[in-house]
Amino acid sequence: MLTKSQAKIFFLAGTIIFSVLFLGLSYDTHVNKHDDQTNADKITPEVVAGKHLWESNNCMGCHTIFGEGAYYAPELTKVIERRGAPYVKGVLMSPTPWGEHTSGRKMVAYGFSEEEANNLIAYFEWIGNVDLNGFPAKPKYEIKKTK
């Protein structure tokens, strides 16, 4: 039967082995693979400024990006591909809550300046080109609304 000290060795050895493996793989991801897979050379100052805006307004508190965030407002990873930059710019610069008259669910009216909106669009464009191993999946069907 297992003794307490054997159980302790199982715990300590497992912890050390798997921590080392995890740190090794993290290193490989960060140092060897990240730049190619994400086009890190395309992270311009505009993209970085966009990321600052994304964070300082907590956009993730309603939306998801890379599927991470909240479930109240649309996934934005491919938003430029789906809507086009001009539409997105309209949303960002709108002085009144977006969605008020269409879906009923309101977005905060940020009323971003032209420059800020462009930075966020640069950020979305970079995001949209990251290789995400197939996310988001293409829907299997295409459904039409009848009424």
């Binding site: 793989l25 693979k33 890379f66 991470e68 290789d131 995400l132 191993n133 996310f135």
Partner: peptide, 12 residues
């Protein structure tokens, strides 16, 4: 959590 955030596919 690394499947779909731009990390290598070995995480799958």
């Amino acid at each position: 959590h690394f499947y779909y955030i731009g990390a290598p596919s070995y995480w799958l």
